[in-house]
Amino acid sequence: MVSIINKNDYELFAKSCEATMLRGRSSVIFMFFWGGFICMFAEMLILIFNRLGFGRQESVIYLNIALILISFTLTLLGAFQKMGRFAVAFIFITPFWLANAVLCCALENRAEGFIFGVCGKMFEIVGPVLVCEVIAFILCGGFLYAFSFL
């Protein structure tokens, strides 16, 4: 057994090695750029929909549809495999992330059949998020309802 390194100290030792070995260039600037880019792109789409004669609320609905379609296309092309290192800010755009998470699970498991593969595994990643969201909605609704009596 390696005697010099104590089991308790190993995690610290590994972290110090990580700090010296994997310094490299940080991708924060790229992440900032890509995060800003997708927001600007979404704003641009809203403006285009406005020009086409839709109201603000309608434009937002069409924007979500457009983002979902773009996310579907990028997932199908496998672009997220390469973008994972720097375009992580994309996951903060809910429709974008949701479409990607649902489609990737459905795609990768489609060999297992339509029911158990596609339908069964479709919400593997999104499922827990949806459950938490529904619980949060119920709690918030309950609070609002209770406060309305005050």
Binding site: A87, F90, N100, C104, N109, I125
Partner: peptide, 17 residues
């Protein structure tokens, strides 16, 4: 990737390690 982590096409932050 699918068995041990997430599907390969899933957009996720990849740690340096």
């Amino acid at each position: 990737q699918r068995q041990f982590r997430f599907p390969a096409r899933y957009l996720q932050p990849r740690p340096k390690t």
